Amino acid sequence: MTGGVRHEVRDGVSYLTLDRPEALNALTPDMRERLTGLLTRASADPAVRAVVLTGTGRGFCAGADLRGGAGGGERVPGDGAPETGDGARVPSGGGRTTGDGARAEKDAAPVPGDRAQVATDTAPVPGGGARVAGDVARVLRLGAQRLIAAVLDCEKPVLAAVNGTAAGLGAHLALACDLVLAAESARFIEVFVRRGLVPDGGGAYLLPRLAGPHRAKELMFFGDAVEAARAERLGLVNLVVPDAELAATAHAWAARLASGPTRALALTKQLVNASLEDGRSAAFAAESWAQEINMTTRDAQEGLRAFTERRAPHFDGR
């Protein structure tokens, strides 16, 4: 494990596990950079044919965490009471408190999004001086948005196994994945409005495409916790399973993805994602070229041979 993220490649699957359970797996800048790098590496590694993203403990990811330490030249704010991603404020005297039914460990300090990592007007900044216009946009672009883009652009299918609360940036990290499994205890929370903030980490891009604009606005305007069963009905989740079955189900789905025609899946992912932006002409042109490229792969040739020979294909991801 490095920087709160465990990583292993097993049976063609890259398993990325957020491992800061005491902080509900809130993302430090180092964790975020490591995830981004591992997703980029998965795209280029022919031994990796699928990715699984999950967390340890009671939370999937409670958002961004300042107290994990800043990195990459990010600016950190002055003192402030720690908050959990589900809206609970943690008392400095210790113990646990509740917010929307979720308990928070006393040392957890997640906050929604990366803007809280930009200095206040009075906080020190590199080279002296105070925060200036452009700092917030830069931190978001190079931080949360870059991580979400790494998930969307990964050339291997990315499966989220949401094991608990996914709040703020943590919710968007899950929703950016190609497939989403959720434990029955999972909850998704657009926590930004509770702090008077605008959603970041691609939330206003992802949610309307998954649930439609009216539902997206409802979730973002009110910031209510969405239980796993409702998240499935809204189209945010593919499947809800009992907590005890989440890991096994994720492994089974990942195994199916890893045994599939990897390049065809990459091109399919690219087509589907681009179709949400492009008109019909551009989508049809992209489809034609995707077919052209895919027909040069060994898996496509194997699939056609297997069809004519009336047998199951064996894809090697190339």
Rank of each mutant, 00 (worst) to 15 (best):
H7F: 11
E8L: 08
E8M: 12
V9I: 15
T17V: 07
R20D: 14
P21L: 05
E22T: 11
E22K: 02
L27R: 08
L27M: 02
P29A: 02
R34Q: 14
T36A: 02
D45C: 01
D45V: 02
R49W: 12
G55Q: 07
G55F: 12
G57S: 03
A62S: 03
D65Q: 12
R67M: 09
G68H: 13
A70G: 09
E74Q: 06
R75W: 11
G80E: 14
R89W: 14
R89I: 04
V90N: 10
P91F: 12
D100E: 05
A102Q: 05
A102G: 12
E105D: 15
P112H: 13
G113Q: 15
A116P: 13
Q117L: 07
Q117I: 09
A123L: 06
R131E: 03
G134K: 10
D135P: 04
V136I: 01
L140V: 02
L142Y: 05
L142R: 13
G143I: 06
A144E: 12
L147H: 02
I148A: 12
A149Y: 02
K156E: 06
L159M: 05
A160F: 07
A161Q: 11
A161M: 09
G164H: 02
A171H: 06
L175H: 09
L175M: 09
L175D: 15
A176P: 01
L179N: 10
A183N: 01
E184Y: 01
I189H: 15
V191S: 14
V191E: 06
V193G: 02
R194M: 05
R195M: 07
G196M: 00
G196E: 00
L197D: 12
G203W: 07
G203R: 15
A204H: 03
L206P: 02
P213L: 09
R215C: 10
R215K: 07
E218R: 04
E218V: 13
L219Q: 01
L219I: 08
F221N: 03
D224Y: 15
E227Q: 08
R230F: 01
R230H: 02
A231R: 11
V240P: 14
D243I: 12
D243G: 06
A244V: 10
A252K: 14
A252S: 11
A254F: 12
A255G: 08
R256Q: 11
G260W: 08
R263F: 10
A264C: 13
L265F: 14
T268C: 14
L271C: 04
A274G: 03
S275P: 05
E277N: 03
D278I: 01
A285M: 09
A286Y: 01
W289N: 11
A290L: 05
A290T: 05
I293K: 11
M295A: 08
T296G: 05
G303F: 00
A306S: 03
F307T: 10
R311I: 13
F315G: 00
G317I: 07
G317T: 05
